[in-house]
Nucleic acid binder design. Structure first.
Length: 402
DNA sequence: CGAGATTCATGTGAAGTATACCTTTAGGCTTAA
DNA sequence: AAGCCTAAAGGTATACTTCACATGAATCTCGTA
């Protein structure tokens, strides 16, 4: 019985005209052949990197602009082309892209360099070696072939905020040790004021060239959406005004094109699931909710155990009280939670750091305040919709065996 | 009444510890000459 | 004697703990008007 209805469901699914022709073109890692409204920046990046084709070291580049202004896209687009030409003409050129905020991948100096070595095709242990040694391995591996190496460090601001700018200094200094090869760095930052916090030496060598990416305006966003949706959807799937609304939503958030595209894609998925032939304006609101929800759920389930416990405690305390909550309360609740699932609790010192990390992730907002006679603490409030709290708590409960 | 001292709860930095993993080295065993 | 394997020794990065000091405004204290 069940089998039969399931069969039918899949049959129907197959017969249905899909809304999407090519969903990939709306996903955030997609690189279109043509990048609109970024001609100037593309030319700049290309101009700076071009000497690589003559085996001269290109200047380091520092790129900044808000999220979704096409920074990564532009750079990968240029590099893709550069790589093709280099390959065709047998020019030794290697381009490595690294996202620095990935937890447990590139969030410390050791791990970042280790990751670089891995990209060059050499397995290295996750811990145990001196950082010096890792640098040495890296240099050796680079020197194996006389080549130019372009390293793209995305979201570099997050990394430096966490571990300082020494890493960048070391990287820029490596060129002095290299004989046949040379390294160029491309730093990408979402924080416009980031360079101010850098050591002047690092700053001057990292930003030999600087490129600013301004936000897209609503008109530009619309044209981007049109271009991509032509690839992604069957004709006539978009109701009147859908693109305009997506663009408007994204323009409201400092012209974030990534968000606009995501809105469109998720709207499409929602419509498809509902068996509707068209995407309507209402789906966009649903999509916005879903995106936010997915983002938060994704962050929560990928946290390490102690972080989950801490989050669970914060949610519990927040639920139970209507005022802003403080570190002390969270810690008490956290200890209870630990006791319930037989985990040895961390110290308050450590919890304090964990809370600060959640603040960075944007799950909560934490502000240190002084309550005068009653001490000093963090004032914590949730940065997620209240309606989501029970769902997250359940998820956490499950994964913690509570 | 107001200036300055006090106080509280926790932020925060530095140094120390536990753990998991790494390489090196020394000793013991086997093997081949 | 040379080669190979193994286990101990000695090293590192990372997550965490311990210790000690810093913070900063509400509250208290006490001198003065």
């Amino acid at each position: 019985m069940v089998e039969k209805s399931l069969n039918k469901f899949f049959e129907n699914f197959l017969q249905k005209e899909p809304l999407f022709i090519n969903k990939k073109s709306l996903q955030s890692n997609y690189t279109p052949n043509h990048v609109p409204h970024r001609k100037e920046q593309i030319d700049q990046v290309a101009g700076i990197l071009a000497p690589a084709l003559r085996s001269e070291k290109p200047s380091n580049i520092f790129i900044y602009g808000k999220t979704g202004t096409g920074k990564s896209l532009t750079v990968t687009h240029v590099c893709k082309n550069l790589n093709q030409i280099a390959k065709k003409n047998k020019i030794p050129l290697k381009i490595i892209y690294l996202n620095c905020k990935l937890k447990r991948v590139a969030d410390t100096e050791y791990r970042l360099v280790a990751q670089l070595v891995r990209e060059l095709g050499l397995e290295v242990p996750s811990t145990g070696l001196p950082t010096e040694e890792i640098y040495k391995l890296f240099v050796e591996k680079v020197e194996e072939v006389n080549q130019l190496l372009v390293i793209i460090l995305d979201e570099i601001d997050q990394l430096v905020r966490k571990i300082g700018d020494e890493l960048l200094y070391n990287l820029t200094r490596l060129n002095a040790e290299l004989k046949g090869s040379q390294i160029s760095l491309i730093g990408i930052s979402n924080d416009l004021l980031f360079t101010d916090q850098l050591d002047p030496r690092v700053k001057s060598s990292l930003s030999e060239e600087e490129i600013l990416f301004p936000p897209y305006n609503a008109i530009q966003l619309q044209s981007i959406l049109r271009q991509r949706s032509k690839l992604a959807f069957r004709e006539g799937t978009l109701a009147e005004g859908v693109i305009e609304k997506c663009a408007a939503y994204a323009a409201r958030e400092h012209g974030d094109a990534r968000r606009a595209l995501e809105l469109l894609r998720v709207s499409g998925e929602i419509a498809e699931r509902k068996n509707l032939p068209k995407i309507s304006i209402n789906h966009i609101d649903e999509a916005e909710e879903k995106i936010e929800k997915d983002r938060i759920l994704d962050i929560t389930i990928t946290q390490p155990k102690q972080f989950k416990l801490a989050l669970f405690s914060m949610l519990t305390v927040c639920e139970g009280s209507n005022h802003k909550i403080f570190t002390g309360e969270v810690y008490e609740s956290y200890r209870d939670t630990c006791a319930r699932c037989a985990v040895k609790p961390l110290t308050q010192r450590r919890l304090s750091d964990i809370i600060a990390e959640f603040d960075m992730l944007g799950i909560i907002q934490a502000k240190t305040i002084s309550k005068g006679r009653y001490g000093r603490t963090r004032e914590i409030s949730l940065a997620i919709p209240l309606s989501l709290v029970p769902k997250i708590k359940n998820l956490l409960k499950e994964s913690l065996n509570l």
